[in-house]
Amino acid sequence: MRRPDMYTVAKLLYIVLILFIIISPFAFIFYRAVTFRRPTGVEFVGLRFFEEITEDYWRALGNSLLVGLLVALLDFAIALPPAYILSKYDFKFKKVLTAVLVAPMFTPDVVAGVGLSTVYFRYYHLYGTLLGTVLGLASTSYPMMLLPLLVSIRSLDPTYEEAAKTLGATPLQTILRVVIPLIGPGIFSGFLLTFVWSINNYLLPLFITGPGIDLLAVKLYSDIRWWGLLGRVAAEASILQLATFGVMLLYLKTIGTKYLTGFSF
């Protein structure tokens, strides 16, 4: 190779730059959570700010985890039938259906929020309820379940299903006993993505959840807006951030980046 030194150095610098750019905002929140700034200098305060976190934060955490779990389950129920049908059959309006099914992912949460809150107020009477929150969050997150499922069902070898059919299984049995176990990684991927997505979503709940139910991301959002300089808020953000990282690391360890876009070229 010609001029290996310059190339290697440039590559290394570039990688360090990218790592710094991506990691520093996240790392700085952790740093803020354990330090206190005085005019004389920065003081390490350990976990003092974490102890200042109040009871309602933990209640909100419970609510958020419940909502995230319900959203992921609902997403799975909504996304499995179309994922299976779209990857196995060909029919009229298939393209239109695919587009309509994937498009919600690209809807800005603000627009979904304005739309959902007006119909919730006027017709559905779901404003401020847990059910309304789950149903609303699922509407913009289920494509994240659908795309991994589509990818994994498409790459499934059809001979397994044919074998099951030949051996006398009904279509429902084939799906439950053969297809679902084989597409396990796709399902797991969809679950983690939609779960993390919904526990971190503050914008849609701002419109549809109302003040009745405390959700962690919403609480964090308003704390950041009004009390952003307090160490306690940095500590609060650190906890949700750690939970998110934990789930995403689990995701990368088990699945990798294979299903993250779902698009092919």
Binding site: L19, I22, I23, W197, L240, M248, T257, L260
Partner: peptide
């Protein structure tokens, strides 16, 4: 690290 910003608009 590439996956982190995916959910981190808040952070």
């Amino acid at each position: 690290s590439l996956v982190f910003p995916y959910f981190g608009d808040l952070y």
